[in-house]
Design a protein around this nucleic acid. Structure first.
Lengths: 205, 205
DNA sequence: CCTACCGATCGGTAGG
DNA sequence: CCTACCGATCGGTAGG
């Protein structure tokens, strides 16, 4: 998305105009969907934050459902691309898991609104989009499980249910939503290091 | 709640009648709130599942908001009572943390609907109830952090940010919501053991 | 427990 | 981008 705009900006100065307004609407929607939830956010709430009447939103977007879909689709793509990079790297399995913890932690911190909406509001997607998301998420978890499984087989990781390990990692990252809210007492870098340390090496010495 | 009914049942056979109907409504509401979210669940949805007209629900409950409040308040009480028991026990700090992981894992498995609603729908509480919940949750986390802190001071736990550790534990448990949905391939006991093992001792040997 | 109904608000459209 | 408005649905009440 950002890359696309960057290229378009260099090739045609006037082209991104409409797109920028749409992006602004989606950005503000992500913020509201995270705060209040998708169902409890009205198009009038959104319009107010954007600074227009509700009817005017429809010159830039087709429906409320489409906004949710675009937020989630964009975030899913970023996760999938990262997973592919990690899978095809030459790191150890433990390093790959560490990379996944770091990536998701950064997503939660630096793409806070969009990532939170993806993990908490996906159930409000329309039936077809919902089915597609569920399929992609299942596949994503399966591929993470495979890395854990391979790490166990290689003796790098202790024998644990890969399913529980993957769920714990993804859920722990989700928990950072709560941290983010209560201001940045702790730096992002420090949080990331402690996430990795706890999830990889546990509490005991 | 269950204890209260149990006692009432022995003392007066006719007393719990109205209460049972209310409990049934709340139980079904918890199921719907978890599946669709509080805001996306209508009183007509609930009435249909209960098997009456929407207007009839109001003979047993005062408002939609009250239902959410009762679900959450009951679950909060159970968590707080358990925490007090653990705090006052003579176990090591590590054992106390283990006990908390086990308790919350069991809550998520055996009080699935109510616990899920508490962790996912609390933001829809009415302002006064919301403020109270936020206060209690903050206090709960603080007390868990204190146990971690003491464990570190005693040399039982490696030096990690207590805040991150507590968040990871509570969030990992929350992630079991997803597991529960996909049938019981793995037994509850096995899940609990692997939760403890991962969160206490990590992935590495 | 029901029928009948209330005012408010919802997502979205028509027309300019 | 607005005003004006649509039908549908919301939580909840009155009255029996």
């Amino acid at each position: 998305m950002y890359n696309h705009n960057f290229i378009a900006l260099r090739m045609n100065q006037t082209a991104p105009k409409v797109s920028n307004k749409k992006n602004r609407i989606i950005k503000i929607a992500a913020k509201l969907f995270r705060e209040k939830g998708y169902a409890a956010t009205s198009m009038r709430d959104l319009a107010e934050q954007v600074g227009v009447e509700a009817a005017s939103l429809y010159n830039h977007i087709n429906s409320k459902a489409q906004i949710l879909d675009e937020i989630i689709e964009k975030t899913v793509s970023q996760c999938t691309e990262n997973l592919e990079e990690i899978e095809s790297s030459n790191e150890s399995y433990l390093k790959k898991i560490e990379g996944l913890i770091r990536f998701h932690t950064r997503m939660m911190i630096f793409q806070f609104e969009e990532y939170s909406v993806m993990v908490s509001e996906w159930m409000h997607l329309e039936p077809k989009k919902l089915a597609n998301f569920a399929k992609q998420r299942k596949e994503y978890v399966r591929r993470m499980e495979t890395i854990v499984q391979q790490g166990i087989a290689a003796g790098e990781i202790k024998p644990l249910m890969p399913y529980v390990v993957v769920l714990n990692i993804l859920s722990s990252v989700r928990g950072l939503e709560f941290w983010h809210r209560s201001s940045k007492i702790h730096s992002a870098k420090k949080i990331e290091e402690h996430m990795v340390k706890h999830l990889l090496t546990g509490l005991t010495h």
